[in-house]
Nucleic acid binder design. Structure first.
Lengths: 340, 340
DNA sequence: CTGTTAGCGCATTCAC
DNA sequence: GTGAATGCGCTAACAG
């Protein structure tokens, strides 16, 4: 039925060795390309292995050798979020370059779930962890329970532990976006963002605040909304702002959800109303096809994953303790003028 | 420095057993909740385990017991595609319910890469595989190299092997979309799709063809484009069709890329030209904010992942051989009228 | 260059 | 109810 007509049982190195009349060690050495074995013997072994279709059991190998498992854990809140899935793609690409694969762990934004997921991945013997933390406290990602595994935090700096991290230039990107609005003459600029408790929430707000300060514009609470909500809430907040007696002439939205909420709020406005400019963090698919001009802070989420992999494997390679490192991914401002 | 001031070395069952003056077996039994152990002893063990923060080594456990690894491999072409990442989310959710996790394997649409990825995942001891096949031939997913591992194909039926699969109702969804265009009075309906060599390519075209036949409309080659291309190519094909002397009054696009290409082609048209209706397979984010009416064939990609998990674990649970099963995910037609 | 011994961490099997 | 021996598949460490 196939090229090899052997037993359907899983082959072990002993089986291969027995057919060749050699010891399992010889097979082991040949398979790993270890030197100190005759070229003729090696070829004989390799031929037999190919003929039999034998494949070494990687788990057993790892158990004995104590070497790396070539498995990296990725812990995110929700892989359906395109930013996380793109991060996953970048991470996986780099990991494969190091001979490793990625195991998924979703937390659903629940810090308790995150703890469990992390513990489980450690038990499974991952060589390292890339975590987009769900909560504010990261002490459970520290040395104790983690068998001194390398950890890289993504999109958030470590709090209470010393580990590597990969950040987006939240402050810089947000400031640039706000500067552009200012440069276009806007003085009343609304901000729709996340709560200050989140890193991105505070950093992106800080960029907004600094840009305004540079322009000599005072912060106005009525133009600031910082909530942890969905698109519906974001749309509501935008509408409320636009209904003010002296509404903002521009909006700065600090993430995807807020941008989409703002877009919907702006969508329904009558032709004769003054147009409201919109700038937001995170790129939007099909942004060029919307009939509203939009400026976005864009970056490559896959780059976060690649950078995280580099940090992980560099740390794994070095024997001496390294100080925690921090990589920041640059952002660029992209303008989508309204079509027509 | 921590609650337990033990050696930093990884603890083994022997260490726990030694501190308690019992045998490793007692610890093993207590940990697995196996019966045949005194309640007092069990509690003593569990307490010590908790105090020490000991965690059993899952790989060693699997090696000896020969039991499942609680690891499922997911092989897709590109996780950045939202349909695959949503599939991954559904799969992971279900897997966690069975105590398993998901390992990623990306192929980049390269059948050769797919073979390698599959082989590697098998070597790593996954209990099963969910594969969105990149190629046309699936024989490498058959019994031989796969240690009789359960395999579920997603979005494509098995060719040359007998395994379970989860399909989308490509034919039905496409036919419904075309029927709707017909119901709205369209007779010249263009089709932008994938090559017939792909399952979705042929099925979605078949839905189109059957709906036209039902309406007594003959197929017209000039209104049919079936290419394996990107958005740019799709847009070009759409433009070419619309430039015909008697252009189609409606377009049916068989997937995401073609829909977006068509949208761009329609976008640039002058106000005074006759509007062209558009219906497409796959939902589109922000579709309701485009200024073109759009009808889409929608379905839940996560449902594919969940169904695949069910097939996998049901097959794993049964000892007797089961015939291959086929699950089809239903589609619904969604109308996005143009805003305003 | 090749083989032998031992053991990774745990669980099956059989004693007691 | 508990413990001792044995082995999962493979590879360090040491023989020869």
């Amino acid at each position: 039925m196939s090229a090899h007509s052997e037993s359907e049982q899983t082959l072990t190195m002993r089986d291969v060795a027995a057919r060749l009349g050699v010891s399992p060690m010889t097979v082991s050495r040949a398979l790993r390309g270890q030197r100190g074995i005759g070229e003729a013997t090696r070829q004989r072994v390799l031929d037999e292995v190919a003929a039999l279709g034998y494949r070494p059991n990687k788990r057993a190998r790892g158990l004995r050798s104590g070497g790396p498992n070539e498995l990296i854990g990725l812990v995110v809140t929700n892989l359906a979020n395109p930013f996380y899935s793109q991060l996953a793609v970048g991470l996986e690409q780099s990991c494969v370059g190091y001979g490793a694969r990625v195991v998924l762990g979703s937390t659903g934004e629940d810090p308790a779930a995150e703890r469990e997921v992390v513990a489980d991945l450690v038990d499974r013997g991952v060589d390292g962890l890339v975590v987009v933390p769900a909560g504010h406290d990261h002490s459970h990602l520290g040395g104790e329970g983690l068998r001194d595994l390398p950890v890289v935090l993504a999109a958030s700096p470590p709090m209470g532990i010393d580990v590597d991290c990969v950040l987006v230039d939240d402050f810089g990107g947000s400031r640039e976006a706000c500067r552009r609005l200012v440069a276009r003459g806007h003085r009343r600029i609304g901000f729709l963002g996340l709560p200050p408790s989140l890193w991105t929430g505070s950093e992106r707000f800080r960029g907004y605040a600094v840009a305004l300060e540079e322009a000599g514009i005072a912060l106005d609470e009525r133009y600031i909304s910082r909530h942890r909500g969905d698109r519906v809430l974001a749309e509501k907040a935008a509408r409320a702002m636009l209904a003010l007696p002296d509404p903002p002439t521009a909006l700065l939205t600090a993430n995807n959800r807020n941008t989409i909420g703002a877009l919907r709020a702006l969508q329904g406005r009558a032709e004769d109303e003054k147009p409201v400019a919109l700038a937001g963090f995170d790129d939007i698919e099909l942004a060029d096809m919307l009939h509203l001009p939009l400026t976005v802070v864009s970056y490559d989420p896959a780059e976060i994953g690649r950078a995280a992999a580099t940090l992980l494997f560099e740390r794994q390679a070095s024997t001496v303790p390294q100080p925690p490192r921090r990589v920041t991914i640059a952002t660029t401002l992209v303008d989508y003028p309204a079509p027509r």
